[in-house]
Design a protein around this nucleic acid. Structure first.
Lengths: 235, 235
DNA sequence: CGCCAGATTGAGGTCAGTCAACTACAGTGG
DNA sequence: CCACTGTAGTTGACTGACCTCAATCTGGCG
């Protein structure tokens, strides 16, 4: 959130307080399971996570990928049973805190409360973008848009990422995020490569034609173009 | 929000303040257009609205239906250009207010700030449910789940709605919400009817087998099962 | 070396889309 | 009162994007 707005010292301290404890997890670890109580929130400090749901028909839908700086687990604190599963994709450091700490933060720091609301709305817009993709966009464009989104979100925390990055996902995971089968993801990646839009080398992807990919998939980076002049004053 | 928690007098007054002005609109009216500035928020007091996006390929994805009591237009105030279009489905009354009024509310009433965050997270979960539907569920179940969702949301404001209600949507709109064509929506409605799960009569739908529909589509009413004991104290 | 998860490729099937015709009905104007 | 118009719903024939199943290939690792 310090990328969105210049924080005051008191605000920085309050956020640091949430990250007092930290835990380390390996790829595959399940942090929170759907349909079980989930009263904790987490700040993801390093690594990559995802949230997903399993349906009765046996399939999985990945809802969202999480990157360093994200607050994860919010949907879980509303309900007596968490609506989604939280799972570690690459070895990561997470800082758990109780939901009462969130309540306290909102009470003491109205501008941070507003910023949390803003972040949750950015996430909402990113989710509706994905909704439109799944409903109305071809398989090839969906895969392309996912690559762009991952690239942009990695770049947000690691400036060294330009157009080339390590996916860190299996093709099955890409499929579960885009509503496709791993077999079809494979074919779409191949086609994108044949058309010169991307290059691949052993799990590493290079975006070759950013503009064409973005156009085909209606992709917009939702962490840009923000207008936050209306936020309440810091305390 | 007064359905989620018993509000104090000061809180009720603050919310009433947002509804000071009111406007009336007819079906079809566009309240906010995507890619144009949208600095206002709205409380929907009566009627039904929807938000959607239009893609380059000419198709439309309906993102969300809005019902009385909803705060609409939040995604628009974050960005210099609104990410989605807001449109009236049935003649409605909306109360516009400036985003600075939201900032003020957050500053003065921390518990209302938390409640707004809660409502936006409920919406997030409803969106991820729909994401899973579009990605992983058959056409027939998607249509069934949409009917259940509309029924539950109408019932939330109008207790007289039990299992029978007037849709107020064209089959094309149902298709744009579920990622289908109107032709296929028609066939799926027919099938649901033939299987005895629903009945139809001139735009009026009766749910005949609630449980079977919910099971097939993994439908959960996200306005139930909440746990809000952790909210900050009212001021 | 053998094992295993993940990636790749082919053949064939199916669900949902496209195109097109037709019906039903409300609104409009003469 | 009725012809005309436009929107929404219905139905059939055909097509195609994506899925399923199955075989093969690859690289990492004990």
């Amino acid at each position: 959130m310090n990328q969105l707005v210049a924080l005051t010292e008191a605000e920085r301290d309050a956020l640091a307080e949430l990250e007092k404890r930290e835990r380390h997890h390996r790829r595959g670890a399940v942090i929170q399971r759907a349909n079980e109580p989930g009263n904790d929130l987490f700040i993801l400090r390093a690594g990559m996570m995802m949230s997903y749901v399993l349906l009765d028909n046996g399939s999985r839908q990945i809802l969202r990928f999480h990157f360093p700086g994200d607050m994860v687990g919010m949907p879980g604190i509303l309900y007596s049973e968490a609506p989604e599963t939280l799972c570690v994709l690459s070895d990561c450091v997470i800082c758990p805190f109780d939901r009462s700490a969130l309540a306290e933060l909102i009470e003491i720091h109205p501008r941070l409360a507003a910023l949390i609301l803003v972040v949750s709305q950015i996430e909402r817009v990113a989710l509706t973008d994905r909704l439109a993709m799944l409903g109305r966009v071809s398989a090839k464009s969906r895969v392309g848009a996912l690559l762009l989104e991952l690239r942009d979100r990695m770049r947000a925390t690691d400036k060294s990422v330009t157009d080339s990055f390590t996916l860190g996902l299996t093709q099955e995971e890409i499929g579960d995020a885009t509503g496709l089968t791993s077999v079809h993801v494979n074919r779409m990646l191949r086609q994108l490569e044949e058309e010169g839009l991307i290059e691949r080398d052993n799990g590493r992807v290079t975006i070759r034609n950013d503009a064409a990919l973005a156009r085909a998939a209606n992709y917009v980076n939702r962490y840009e173009g923000l207008d936050l002049g209306w936020l309440p004053d810091a305390r």
